[in-house]
Design a protein around this nucleic acid. Sequence first.
DNA 1: ACAGGATGTCTAGCGCTGCTAGGATGTGGT
DNA 2: ACCACATCCTAGCAGCGCTAGACATCCTGT
Lengths: 191, 191
Amino acid sequence: MSAISERRERERAHRHQLIITAARDLAETEGWEAVTTRRLAERVEYSQPVLYSHFNGKDAIVSAVALDGFSELAAHLRRARQAAPEPGQGLRAVCRAYLEFATERPALYQAMFILPTDLKFASAETPPPLRASFDEFVSCFHPDNKRRELFAEVLWSALHGIAVLSASGRIPPDGQEERLDFLITQIADTR
Amino acid sequence: MSAISERRERERAHRHQLIITAARDLAETEGWEAVTTRRLAERVEYSQPVLYSHFNGKDAIVSAVALDGFSELAAHLRRARQAAPEPGQGLRAVCRAYLEFATERPALYQAMFILPTDLKFASAETPPPLRASFDEFVSCFHPDNKRRELFAEVLWSALHGIAVLSASGRIPPDGQEERLDFLITQIADTR
DNA sequence: ACAGGATGTCTAGCGCTGCTAGGATGTGGT
DNA sequence: ACCACATCCTAGCAGCGCTAGACATCCTGT
């Protein structure tokens, strides 16, 4: 009774992750508009209703992909910050890493920041990976800076704006490095 | 022959605008997900195919709404800048006006900056209203500032980030004023 | 060992979407 | 009066997210 249902639960968890990675793969290779429940079901070799036994709907699948994305983003930013030669360089390293993440995983970034998801931001039930990503920005400022949370929000917003406007062709794709330079120069003195 | 076809063309142009305003009204009251070709056709009291004799598809309708939006945005920003007591206050006035525009016309803002459109940004065939909006940001900097275009891009990006992240609940809705304050303080010295 | 019940999965279909082919209708020019 | 043309609508296609209900399969208690 227990061993069997344990095995089932294991299989179920495995399939759960299979759906998430399949959705992500499909989105990264063909864009989110190609991610339909039918095509996704075909990929994981199950019928459509199986998807709905794991997720409340398509939005929940996107949310799950986004959540994975936030874990990766937090790790990516942390790695960049800790690899910085001195704490003063952390700001630049984190910002560059952020833009890198956005341009190299556009579909993932879209799921995290543009597509409608069920994720709760900036509240008590904010999932840890989201909070961890945000905290990397906060860590760019001195611990005794009383307004570091606010500064982090603005910094994050600016980076997000640069990432999304250049990705959609609303500002020229080149010149990212100069924009980043300017932004950091203006923010740096508030550390 | 000429008088008649002139009248027809007039009527056609009128209907063209009717479709655009109907789409905008519907989006502003019920959101873009409620703007379907069927509901839109019903609103303008024509059948669906008529829409396609005016626009290449739904995206083109959204683009037309967005284009109208850019005209209004440019006018809105210009008014704010010119109403500023002294040129040094122009930056703050324009930024505040921008965020105001984004929060008070969310559906319009979405069409302009988030939904996929056919509009060409930052190129030779960029429609004048787009260029005019961007130029309002450029005008916030001194005419002899050689990098003012770049600075304007970053400023615009930051404001867009703030607008869109707060609208989607990814940063807290309150505190906009402080964020704006911080942003302007950091940018002001580069005028 | 076997019947009964719970669990899991699939087929089929609903109401909706953007979009379009083809026929009806009515007007304008000769 | 007639033809030709432009205009517009009905009807339908393929695909979407999502779900009800039938079916099979496996586990459990006697």
